[in-house]
Design a protein around this nucleic acid. Structure first.
Length: 180
DNA sequence: GGGCCGATTGTT
DNA sequence: ACAATCGGCCCG
């Protein structure tokens, strides 16, 4: 058995089975980890997120469950990856208890592979980290997952700023974009 | 089957 | 400002 993670710990399902707004803010400062098909593992600190909830006109799940959005209604702690603008994929983490839709969009990373480089924008993150719809629905909780999230090692929490969400045409008054 | 739109991004 | 580029969803 090989150890993928030494010091950092995975969140458990209970972490994701909470209010989407709380999960969004708590994910800031955590680390997104990605095992590429080549075997190479990338990791970087989450620095920007957005929350999308059941009673939110900007959420894909707002108009009910469809083939595309069904993972939003499923168990928490899974990846929701959708294809947008004919070119880009966006990565979300599913929140709320099973049966209630909700997700946190990952919009920004910092310190990619210890290089210190920043990666801004959900489309670019998925492009550079080879995240596409094949990962839609995968659990982030299993150690053999190609995608998982770990807590920050020092146990501290970053200072959180908020603003309107980017690129939406509805519910623009909700300050549900959080960043560090 | 047709048409419109989108949780984006890079270029004009 | 706008083009790139295509799946989902609604309508008929």
């Amino acid at each position: 058995m090989k150890a993928i993670i030494s010091s950092a710990k995975l969140h458990c399902e209970e972490f994701y089975a909470r209010s989407t707004l709380k999960v969004a803010k708590d994910l800031l400062g955590c680390y997104l980890n990605r095992r590429l098909p080549s075997g190479l593992v990338l990791n970087a600190e989450i620095t920007e997120v957005e929350a999308y909830t059941a009673n939110d006109p900007a959420c894909h799940a707002f108009n009910g469950k469809t083939k595309r959005t069904q993972v939003l209604f499923g168990p928490p702690g899974r990846a929701y990856v959708y294809f947008i603008y004919g070119m880009y994929n966006c990565l979300n983490v599913v929140t709320e208890p099973d049966g209630i839709p909700g997700a946190v969009l990952i919009r920004g990373l910092n310190g990619i592979a210890d290089s210190g480089a920043k990666l801004n924008g959900p489309g670019k993150i998925c492009k550079y980290w080879q995240i596409d719809r094949e990962l839609n629905g995968v659990s982030l909780l299993a150690l053999d997952s190609p995608l998982w999230i770990t807590k920050r090692a020092d146990g501290t929490s970053p200072k959180i700023l908020k603003s309107e969400r980017i690129g939406i045409s509805q519910a623009q008054d909700r300050l549900w974009r959080f960043y560090t």
